[in-house]
């Protein structure tokens, strides 16, 4: 039983392995990019919209609204990063219904890569928004004694981000595999549906958490470690 698509290697050159994770990631990238390009090359700015343009506008507006709601800031700077996190994970999970497809998000390497991106993006956005001094200052708040804990918290939430997504997607795949051996035919289909739901929820959770972390770093009144519920209580900019 294959647990991670990393282990399926199609081509190898030196240390570099062209495994299923990378191949299916490219597939998702091509689908997203090509779909976007096909629709956006003929955009209408009048009152009449094509269905696909309408779908894309709904998606973009929805993501923007979510970002604005969570961060209480203009969504513009964060939209490409957070939106792409959501779209990539959602598309990668959605394609799971295709037989023979292996979701790249079921690989710990992919989720780790995404989590690292978030890990890096948080200070980048924070420094860009508040300046390096003000950003780094929040690591020694309320006292310098908290510095190690703040750093550990920063790292641990990144690890949690990676493992949460990986675990959810991987477990879906594994459960389907196990159920197939126990109760073949129909029941695994239900689990597949459940897996789709889980996949969409995980994409949402990942993107929202990334936004929460970024918002906590860019918000002027932040103190200490933000948690997942903080977006509800963070003061308005």
């Amino acid at each position: 039983m294959t647990i991670t698509p990393d282990s399926i290697v199609y081509w190898q050159w030196g240390d570099f392995e062209l495994n299923a994770t990378i191949v299916f990631t490219w597939l998702v990238m091509v689908l997203l990019t090509a779909g976007s390009w096909l629709v956006t090359r003929r955009l209408s700015d009048g009152p009449e919209l094509s269905r696909w343009q309408n779908l894309l506008e709904v998606l973009v507006v929805g993501i923007r609204d979510q970002i604005a709601q969570v961060s209480h800031q203009q969504p513009g700077p964060y939209l490409p990063f957070v939106g792409t996190l959501f779209l990539f994970i959602a598309m990668a999970n959605l394609l799971n219904v295709i037989p023979g497809y292996l979701a790249p998000t079921g690989s710990l390497s992919t989720t780790t890569a995404l989590a690292i991106c978030v890990f890096v993006a948080v200070p980048v956005f924070g420094i860009a928004s508040k300046g390096a001094g003000a950003y780094l200052e929040h690591y020694i708040k309320p006292t310098a004694l908290m510095l190690p804990f703040n750093v550990i918290g920063e790292i641990s939430r990144t690890v949690a981000l990676a493992v949460r997504l990986y675990g959810n997607i991987m477990s879906g795949t594994v459960i389907v595999a196990i159920l197939l051996s126990l109760t073949p035919y129909f029941f695994p289909v239900v689990m597949q549906l459940l897996g789709l739901l889980t996949g969409m929820i995980q994409a949402y959770i990942f993107a929202i958490l990334a936004m929460v972390y970024i918002a906590s770093a860019t918000s002027a009144h932040e103190h200490g470690e933000p948690d997942e519920n903080q977006n509800k209580t963070s003061p308005e900019q």
Partner: peptide
């Protein structure tokens, strides 16, 4: 693979920014 995925993700961010977000937002 992790580094490849990081690069892939960054490329995807750029691609979607180029082909999705900017055109759609501009159109809107």
């Amino acid at each position: 693979t992790v580094s490849a995925q990081v690069v892939n993700f960054l490329i995807l961010v750029w691609l979607l920014k180029r082909f999705l977000y900017q055109p759609v937002i501009r159109a809107m």
